[in-house]
């Protein structure tokens, strides 16, 4: 038994140290990496508590997806654009400290009341074993008792996704691309930038050259002699 306690203290100690690193690190990427370390250790503690599904879900969802996205954003943003980490006004810092304390108190209250009362909850080990394991137990509980909250959460996430898409606004990218095409491409001399009214060469008209199928639903026009230039076609439907 002692060895398990030892392992638990090891995991918990690393988790706490990593959590401290999240707050203390100057570099936001280092913070995120510390958070990952903390999450992994917490997942290991879940395994010790025989909650393997929870542990794996923690790793997949939090470390595998969310923190990766956080890192993604951090890398896209220039370092000097980030807000000062340990700065802020004194009032804001005091409020943040207080909020942290309140959160800690809430968690402690929840844990203490549960363990002091000694209530094992609605799924004692025998009941879990009866349905085949903790995954099955979680599944049953989620999709029977908590059906409505699950659906509500799903709806909420969907709405959030749509909202994110709207905020990112793909058409804005199109707009900017159009601007980029007009202004920012360094083909400074291309005729649209300089002389939009005067087309440089007139478009070739229809033609009667042999057409050779060339694969990928394309055809190649096989010009036999050069006189046919003005009758040269070859083009027309696709415009930029």
């Amino acid at each position: 038994m002692a060895i398990e306690v030892l392992i638990f203290y090891l995991l918990a100690g690393v988790a706490i140290a990593a959590a401290a690193g999240v707050v203390l690190a100057r570099n936001p990427v280092h913070s995120a990496v510390s958070l990952v370390l903390s999450f992994v250790n917490v997942a290991a503690i879940y395994v010790m508590l025989r909650a393997e599904f929870l542990a794996v879900a923690q790793v997949i969802v939090y470390t595998g997806a969310i923190i990766v996205l956080v890192l993604f954003v951090l890398m896209l943003v220039q370092q000097q654009d980030l807000p000062e980490f340990h700065g802020g006004r004194p009032l804001r810092r005091a409020v943040g400290f207080l909020l942290g304390l309140v959160l800690l108190a809430e968690v402690a209250a929840a844990i203490l009341t549960r363990s002091l009362r000694g209530a094992p909850g609605s799924w004692p080990p025998e009941a879990v074993a009866a349905v085949g394991g903790n995954i099955q137990a979680i599944g049953r509980e989620l999709y029977s008792v908590y059906m409505l909250p699950i659906q509500a959460t799903a709806l909420l996430l969907l709405a959030a996704t749509v909202g994110a898409l709207f905020l990112a606004r793909p058409e804005l990218i199109e707009e900017r691309l159009a601007v980029a095409r007009r202004l920012f491409t360094i083909s400074l001399a291309h005729p649209r930038g300089v002389d939009p009214l005067q087309p440089v060469a007139e478009l070739p008209g229809p033609h009667d050259n042999e057409r050779k199928p060339a694969g990928g639903d394309r055809v190649l026009v096989m010009a036999r002699n050069a006189e046919e230039f003005t009758e040269q076609p070859a083009w027309g439907e696709i415009r930029r």
């Binding site: 070739p204 040269q232 070859a234």
Partner: peptide, 30 residues
């Protein structure tokens, strides 16, 4: 590739390209 028929071998044959029978492929989409 943009469909303009200009190949020096055809347009202004040098050497003996005017005695040779060949075609100049032209693209249709550029």
């Amino acid at each position: 590739g943009s469909g303009v028929n200009y190949d020096v071998r055809k347009a202004m044959p040098y050497l003996l390209y005017d005695r040779i029978d060949f075609a100049v492929p032209l693209g249709t989409h550029g």
